[in-house]
Every structure is written in structure tokens, then in C-alpha cells.
Computed example of a mutant assay.
Amino acid sequence: MLLAAALSALFTVSPARAADGRITGLAGKCVDVAGANTANGTAVQLYDCNGTGAQTWSNPGDGTLRALGKCLDVTSGGTADGTTVQLYDCNGSAAQKWAVSSANDIVNPQADKCLDVTGNNSANGTRLQIWTCSGGANQKWTAPASGGTTPSGFVVSEAQFNQMFPNRNGFYTYSGLTAALSAYPGFANTGSDTVKKQEAAAFLANVSHETGGLVYVVEQNTANYPTYCDWSQSYGCPAGQSAYYGRGPIQLSWNFNYKAAGDALGIDLLGNPWLVQNDSAVAWKTGLWYWNTQSGPGTMTPHNAMVNGAGFGQTIRSINGSLECDGRNPAQVQSRVDAYNRFTSILGVSPGSNLYC
């Protein structure tokens, strides 16, 4: 068995982290300039992400958000709920100043109101406006240079990661996770924006379940430690009988799993399994190794389950299905599903179907 038992202040966007990119929100859709029109007063709306310049926003470090050479602007400098936003010549006014919170709100400080999808409607063409901040999904955004995107392009921002794991162990760093992504570039980077976010949420939900919310780095039941050495393997257990206990986000255990993961990653984990509890990036890589390459007791890898539409339930089956699925332990399954639902909500996407196994 592989698995062992288990910033709220607003800040103006920093030029040091400025980057061009999409602003994504409700239903994984993008903030879009209608018709890619550069005329002053052009509506800014929600639309399917398509990679065009009408959806490419930058932050030059002066508190503005810009597309097509113009600024995101509150119409007529209004401050009332329901005031629309538009594209307009940059003029340095308070109507064009935006601040991004660690909770992924985009706020116009003059009005003290949030960028909002009118009527919580995810249909293409829905106009964007400002509205009293409510914390709703229609006011949550992943914005360029706001902590909403990373150089890796990971669909989970650092702020969202911290929201998912408020009590996490300091070992499980966000930078360690993003550093590990290069080992499996297809992870959370395949298919539509919705599928990418669903896969990230699914991985992190299972990881959360395995580690008590990213609290535990190593298996807590030390009595199990001597049991994870399979001496029938030709390479044996060079690090010692008790060296292959559960570690890291997926709680990697058994000498043969350390050997297979190490071989795949180019790291000597058979000889030095302690790397998984001492190096955050290595730990995350072992979790991604299992997620992307191993089917476990299931019939597909968790990665394939998510990108091919089989659903979150099949990721549970591939990770611990022999102990949890088909009615064996519904409480454990529910724990995973609850985490997945919570994380997809944070990312602003539907969880999809087939959540149970």
C-alpha cells in the first residue's frame, strides 16, 4: 500500500511582480474587452478565455490594470453599487486605481467596492461592475501580478493555497510546490481552464486528507515504520528496515515506491528516503509522481481521471480505493469530497460530476 495513515490586507499591485496575463474569475472565465475594441467606453465583460489581447492584462506598478493599451476604469468615476466598468484612456484618476487583496478581491479604493460579475451570471458577455464586497465567487479573481499567478503558470495562487491550508506545516511551502511542477508539466496544465483548476483542487484535496491539512510531514504511527521494507525486492532496503515510512504530501511509503519514484525523478530516494521529509520540492515531486504515473488500486492515474472526465471519485479509487471505495469507508471518502468541494469553491469552478467511488 502506497499511502500511510494518514493575507487579508489590501495592497497595490507591485511592479516587482508585474506580468502580463489573464484575469480569471467565475466559472474559470476571463475578464474581456468586448470585441477587442479600443474605443473609450468599451464594455468590460466576462467571456470564455481565448488567449487574445482583449484578455491580456498587465500591471505597470502604478495601481492600474491595462489591456489593449488602455486602463480598466469605473464608468464616470462612480462609487455606487452597480456602476459598470469599461476600457478608457489611462488618466491617473481614482476611477482607474485597483488593489488586490490576498483573498483575491479586486477593489477600487475610491469606492471601496469590489470588481463584480453582474448577477453572478457566468454567461459570455455578462458586464462587469463594482459592488459592495461580499466574498462571493462572482468577486474572486486570479489577477496578473497580484499573487494570483506565478511564473510557473500554476492555476492556484499563493493566496488561494494559504486559504486552503491555513494551519499547514511550514515545510509544505508554496514555492516548493511550484518548483516541483516542472517534473510533470501536464499536471493542472491540460485541457480547459476549468479542468486545470479541477485537477489542482483534486490533487490538493487528496493531499489534504492524507496529511491532516498539510500538517503532517511524516507518518504519525511509528509502530508501522519497520513494516514498509519488502525484502523480496532485489535491491532490498539499503537505508534500513525502518526507513521507508510515509512521508510528504502523498505519504510515500514502502521501499519499492521510494525506488520507483526516485528512478522517475532522478533522485536516490531508495538510498536517502529522508530527502522526502527534508526538501519541500522533493516531497511535492513524490506526490506529483504518484498522481501522474500510478494507478494504485484503480484503473487509471488520478491525472487521467481528471483530464479525461472520469471525475474526482476515480482519483480516490486510484489512491486508496481498496480501503475506502465501494462502501468500505464512506466517512473517509466524504472527507476527501468535502475538501475537493471546498477547494473548487476557492478556485471558482464547478466540482463536476462523479465525486464518489
Rank of each mutant, 00 (worst) to 15 (best):
V100I: 15
S102M: 05
S102V: 11
N104W: 02
N104V: 08
I106P: 01
V107T: 09
N108L: 00
N108D: 05
Q110T: 10
L115N: 04
L115Y: 02
D116R: 08
D116L: 07
V117T: 05
R127S: 10
L128V: 09
L128W: 02
L128Q: 02
Q129G: 12
Q129H: 10
T132W: 03
G135M: 13
G135D: 07
G135R: 03
Q139L: 01
K140S: 06
T142I: 06
A143M: 04
A143S: 06
G147P: 06
G148P: 03
T149M: 10
T150E: 09
S152P: 04
G153L: 04
G153I: 04
F154R: 01
V155P: 03
V155S: 05
E158P: 06
N162D: 14
M164A: 04
M164E: 07
P166N: 15
N167E: 15
F171T: 02
Y174F: 15
S175H: 01
G176I: 06
A179T: 03
A183K: 14
G186Y: 10
F187Q: 10
A188R: 02
A188Q: 04
N189T: 03
G191W: 01
S192K: 09
K196H: 09
E199C: 03
A200C: 05
N206E: 14
V207D: 13
V207T: 14
V207S: 14
H209V: 12
E210D: 12
T211G: 09
T211A: 14
G212F: 14
G212E: 05
G213N: 10
G213M: 01
V218K: 10
N221H: 10
Y225C: 03
Y225W: 09
P226F: 13
P226A: 05
Y228L: 01
C229M: 11
